[in-house]
Design a binder for these strands. Structure first.
Lengths: 233, 233
DNA sequence: CGACTGGTTGATGACAGTCAACTGATGTGG
DNA sequence: CCACATCAGTTGACTGTCATCAACCAGTCG
């Protein structure tokens, strides 16, 4: 198969109107904060990627979310300032801190309407995620692939061919299934000619077919309007 | 079994600092809005209860959330003003409209810090919900019972004995399982002496045991600190 | 080159979904 | 007020999906 390039390592910072003085770099596999930590604010991913997970009483981890550039981290601290989840970088990343003070005092340079918009986007993602969790395995995987692809496209990157920054175990934990199931289903996708894969490089050969699987129907699913229009406009 | 009283019909409006001029009453089984509707704002439940659900392309409903007094509705419209879900009352309810204008313009009477706090609470609920969805059936049911009970206790109502406002089908859709599974598991709970049920009346005989099931361990789970302290304080 | 981590594949069993029948509760019209 | 229709809830039998356990292969790193 063709040599895939890793486009998740680009320091793409589109839609960053102002260079944030609160921006900083954090290395691969480092903790941003852990469950129970008191947070100073929420964070925004400028480049790189992180995983957010919780550890249950039983001791198993469950990945809540992968954050890509543009995503917010630490919203679970909005209620009382305490994080209920742990955040680890998947690769070297650039983040910005948005202090709670700025949010509550509505600092000049804090874009409040955009913040509200972002919160809404987050809600919609979480809801879609939880809906997806009660679907069968292949739909969940298809949903993940489409989501990942869309996220890249939104940032102007290649949507058909990419390299994921997380390992299979992480993806499986995120999708709520065993690694083996993920592996098997991916193999099936390959056999059906829907995707090609080599290690963490993935090529989507038939995006529309995958999208149909994600939507759970064989009919044309064109209800995927972007609706990125902002309420604040 | 003893005659259970229905405490979900009380017009309890605790923590309502101001009588909202935007409050209104909506009858049982009426739609507040549907998927795709343009919203005027978000809503707050003062009394009664509603269910929020989405209909997939395949045509099946999935219940996202039940809202009780104090809960916010329509957060999925924050991104662009369009609702991605449908809301139906489970009983006659009293709601307040919080217009987007009030939120974006920061009206005097709009309690911004409390709003941010509420958003955080919502996030935490959604995350807990999605984590729960990948647990086995009995844990999900136990989680639901504990959650319902806690919600009542928080409003000063009886936590051990209550009447749910939703039917089995709704609960099953919410928990992402078949009605039959719910029915069977509930029957098991009864046999084990954990709960008593008669129609929609439910009595929790051993809350701690149920909580342990929800947490998935047989050990004492005391990590349930309330943490209702507000960030805004 | 071994040792380790990450990823795949195979065999087996359990949990839970589906189909179906049935009971109990609620509501309606004659 | 009863007969009937309808809806909600329960229980049983069967099946399929997916988790688990296990072995194995591939890639990476010291």
């Amino acid at each position: 198969m063709s040599h895939l390039h890793n486009n998740t390592q680009l320091n793409t910072m589109n839609n960053m109107s102002t260079i944030d003085s609160n921006a900083f770099v954090i290395r691969e596999r480092e903790f941003l904060f852990k469950m129970g930590d008191q947070l100073e604010g929420i964070y925004r991913v400028n480049s790189g990627s992180v995983k957010i997970f919780k550890t249950t009483e039983s001791g198993d981890d469950q990945i809540i979310r992968f954050c890509m550039p543009g995503d917010l981290i630490g919203l679970d601290g909005l209620a009382d300032g305490m994080s209920r989840s742990t955040v680890v970088t998947l690769e070297t990343s650039n983040l910005s801190l948005i202090p709670f003070k700025s949010i509550l005092n509505r600092d000049q340079k804090f874009d409040y309407p955009d913040f509200i918009h972002q919160l809404g986007v987050n809600f919609n993602h979480d809801i879609e995620y939880s809906m997806m969790l009660s679907q069968c395995a292949d739909r969940r995987i298809a949903w993940f692939l489409i989501n990942y692809s869309d996220s890249l496209k939104k940032r102007g990157l290649r949507a058909e061919e990419f390299s994921v920054s997380m390992k299979r175990t992480d993806i499986a934990l995120y999708l709520g299934m065993a690694v083996e199931t993920l592996s098997r289903e991916l193999a099936t996708f390959c056999k059906r000619g829907l995707v090609k894969k080599y290690l963490r490089n993935i090529e989507l050969l038939d995006i529309e077919a995958i999208r149909k699987i994600a939507n759970g129907d064989t009919l044309l699913a064109d209800t995927h309007s972007d609706s990125s229009e902002s309420l604040a406009a």
